[in-house]
Simulated scan of single mutants.
Amino acid sequence: MSGNKFRNAVKEYIENWNRNYNLGIKIKLEQPLGYRFLNNLRIIDILLYRNNRFLGIECKYQGVSGTAYQKLIYTLEDCKTTPIPTIIVFAGNGIKEDVKSKLITSGYGIEVLYEDGLVKEKGFPVLLQRIAIELGIDWFDMDIFNKKGERYENS
């Protein structure tokens, strides 16, 4: 259940940004998108669409240590074979540092903060920047990207 709550918080974070800047991003949850590496139909957590450009987002939260690293590694492999650009947005104290590092340095992983049911960026809004780049949004003039080290806050 915490996975769905995290996914919904990521969606809300993107929706607020989309609404505040009138960006015209369409957002859908749980959409079929190609096949997983085990040849099963893949369902992407969040699908973004704008001006014939797509971005898939897998949302992964792990609050306590466990076997999340296996799921995250499988998800990373899935992202490499998805027919559209896809990223992994993740949070939680249960994700080991080596797995975080692997996700981030792969270019697919973006770590965010997840507190009190809200998603926040860790300093510079990397998630929003990546969405802007992938969907062809001119982000150079947007205030949130000019504030070095300050977070975009949901308002």
Rank of each mutant, 00 (worst) to 15 (best):
M1P: 00
G3C: 01
G3R: 09
N4Q: 04
N4Y: 06
R7G: 05
R7H: 13
N8D: 15
V10R: 10
E12D: 14
E12L: 15
Y13M: 12
Y13K: 04
Y13E: 14
I14N: 05
E15N: 08
N16A: 02
N18G: 02
R19K: 14
R19A: 11
Y21R: 03
N22V: 14
N22F: 13
L23I: 09
G24M: 11
K26C: 06
K26G: 08
K26Q: 14
I27N: 05
I27Q: 07
K28L: 13
E30G: 07
Q31W: 02
Q31G: 00
P32R: 06
L33W: 06
L33F: 01
G34N: 07
G34K: 04
R36L: 04
R36S: 12
L38M: 07
N39M: 08
I43L: 09
D45H: 04
D45I: 08
I46V: 15
I46M: 10
L48W: 05
R50M: 12
R50K: 15
N51G: 06
N51T: 11
R53V: 08
F54S: 09
L55T: 02
G56Y: 06
E58T: 03
K60I: 14
K60S: 03
K60G: 06
Y61L: 15
G63C: 14
V64K: 14
S65M: 10
Y69C: 01
Y69I: 04
L72R: 02
I73P: 00
I73M: 10
Y74C: 03
T75Q: 07
E77H: 03
T82D: 09
T82W: 00
I84C: 01
P85S: 04
F90K: 02
G92A: 10
G92T: 14
N93R: 14
I95C: 00
K96S: 14
S101Y: 05
K102H: 08
K102C: 09
L103I: 02
L103E: 05
L103M: 13
T105M: 10
S106V: 07
G109E: 01
I110E: 03
E111R: 05
V112S: 12
L113Y: 14
Y114D: 11
D116K: 14
G117W: 15
G117Q: 13
L118Y: 15
V119G: 02
K120F: 13
K120I: 05
E121M: 09
E121A: 09
K122W: 05
K122G: 01
V126H: 02
L127P: 04
L128F: 12
R130I: 09
R130Y: 11
I131F: 06
A132T: 07
E134M: 07
E134I: 07
E134K: 04
G136F: 11
W139Y: 15
W139N: 03
F140A: 00
F140H: 11
D141H: 11
M142I: 15
D143C: 02
I144N: 02
N146Y: 00
N146H: 03
G149L: 07
G149C: 06
R151I: 15
Y152S: 02
S155Y: 03
